[in-house]
Structures are given as structure tokens and as C-alpha cells.
Design a binder for these strands. Structure first.
Lengths: 131, 131
DNA sequence: ATAGGTGCAAACGGTTTGCCGAAAT
DNA sequence: ATTTCGGCAAACCGTTTGCACCTAT
């Protein structure tokens, strides 16, 4: 089955230590420091494998590239609508509403994603300076 | 300022009546029935203009194309992780937590997106049949 | 030995852009 | 008359894929 390769190990270790919800490209840059020949295609292949295994979450964004997020604890995200920066928020919303939503939609639900959207401190400062 | 063109009017009217959170391509197909020469590029240009005006929301997905959603009432989404189908959920979550999240993240927040993820009835049935 | 994984380069799909002509003000 | 808008086709960018080689099992 799934083999333990240097590429996979390196990527997992980077995902574990990264706090920035990196893009595939960011991860690739970091991987290259340890495995100078590793291709971007391999990063993508690993990311989609890990995603199917449930080891990571893919966060689609309107800022081009997807962000990747290792699944460790339950948490939500604050996403900057200007630059795409993502900050974690501890999980503090009960999933009490789940059965209500299931009744409403007919879906079988297994994950709630709560996404706050607004300006991160950086972009807020820049926006003020420009206007 | 913003001119009132046939293309813009048609697109807005389609967005208002569509209940399916259409992709740009779906919208284009429908627009073509009324304006046979309208280009896909125009649909994209209008969508991004409308998005900046705050008239619509862009919903990025991991299923390729973005979905577009007219902003009328506050609601959230149930999104099928298999086929990407989106169903509306009435807003029932207080925004009490906002200031707490702002303190935590330093963001200035203006929107909460709550996204339930799971299998829509269709995909659940298919999944059962295959396993 | 043999799946399964990887590198490379080419293909892909959704979206954006430059250019010029058309249409709304 | 002016200036925004739209059509077309080409470019773009993130991601995926086919192929031949490699490597963990």
C-alpha cells in the first residue's frame, strides 16, 4: 500500500510545523531545501492523497491557490478577503445544530466549517493609508 | 459610472431567479439564450464587478469552478463534498462571537460563512450502491 | 520482483487580459 | 462626444496527467 518515501515524510513534517496554511507552491519551496529534486507535481500528488486519507484539509480560496491545513484539532478560520491570509480560531461553536441542518437539507453532514471573513491587521493598515 | 447594459441586466435577472448557486459557465449558457453573442469573458467581468459591488458572493470550491450567490438574505451553505452541490441554510447562528473572534485574531470582520460539508442525498445514494 | 511513487514536460480547465470596435450616457 | 463596456482570442496560473524511470517493500 502507501509507501513511506522521503517526499511524503518531508511534506508531512512541513505541514505539521507550518502555522501558515501554506499553498502547494510554498510547500514546494520548503521541500526543495531538503530534497532539491522534488517536483511540484509530487507535492500536488501527495497533497491530494493526504486529503483523501483525511490527514489534511483543502481550503479553497478566491485568491488563486488552495491552502492546506493539517487536521489535528478542531478549529475554524479567519480569512482576509484582501490578501488571503488565514488565522486559526479555536472551536467554540457547538454542533448542536447539526441534526436540524440535516433535516433541512437532506445532507449527511460530517464537517462544519466556520469562516470569518474580513481584513487582517496588515491589510487594514494598508487600506487606511490608501484612502 | 456603471452603465446599464443588456448583459448586466440579463445576468442579474438570472442570478436572482437561479436557486442553484451556478458557475460562470452555467450562467453563460443561460445568458446565451437571450443574448446569443454574449461572451464568457463578459460573464466573468460582470461577476467580478458585481462581487466588488457586494451584490453577489463568490463561493470558492475544490470542485473546479467557483459558485456565485446573489446577496439577498443572510444564509449559510451545505456543500456536498462529492459533487459540489450547494444547498442554502437559513441564518440561525448569532454573531455574538464576533468581538471575541476579533480580539483573538486582530481581524476586522464583516462576514461569517458557515459551511456544512457532507454528502447530498444524491451522492449518498450512489455511494451506498457502490460499496 | 513488483507495485507504487517520482520527475519531467506537456496538457488541462477556469479565469483574466489586451486590443479594438460598439453602445450607453 | 466621451468613456465605459463587450467580443474575440490569446495569455495566464494553479493543477493534473502520461510516460519512463526509480525505489520501498
Amino acid at each position: 500500500m502507501t509507501r513511506q518515501t522521503k517526499q511524503r515524510a518531508t511534506l508531512m513534517s512541513l505541514l505539521r510545523t507550518s502555522k501558515q496554511h501554506p499553498t502547494a507552491e510554498m510547500l514546494h519551496v520548503d521541500v526543495l531545501r531538503e530534497l532539491p529534486n522534488c517536483s511540484l507535481a509530487t507535492v500536488y500528488r501527495l497533497l491530494s492523497a493526504l486529503s483523501e486519507e483525511g490527514a489534511i484539509r483543502t481550503i479553497p480560496t478566491e485568491h488563486g491557490a488552495n491552502r492546506y491545513d493539517i487536521v489535528e484539532d478542531d478549529h475554524h478560520h479567519a480569512i482576509c478577503t484582501h490578501c488571503g491570509q488565514i488565522t486559526d480560531i479555536p472551536d467554540m461553536v457547538s454542533d448542536q445544530a447539526r441534526s436540524e441542518v440535516e433535516r433541512w437539507t437532506g445532507f449527511t453532514l460530517n464537517e462544519l466549517r466556520l469562516e470569518w471573513r474580513g481584513l487582517c491587521p496588515n491589510c487594514r493598515t494598508k487600506a487606511h493609508q490608501q484612502n
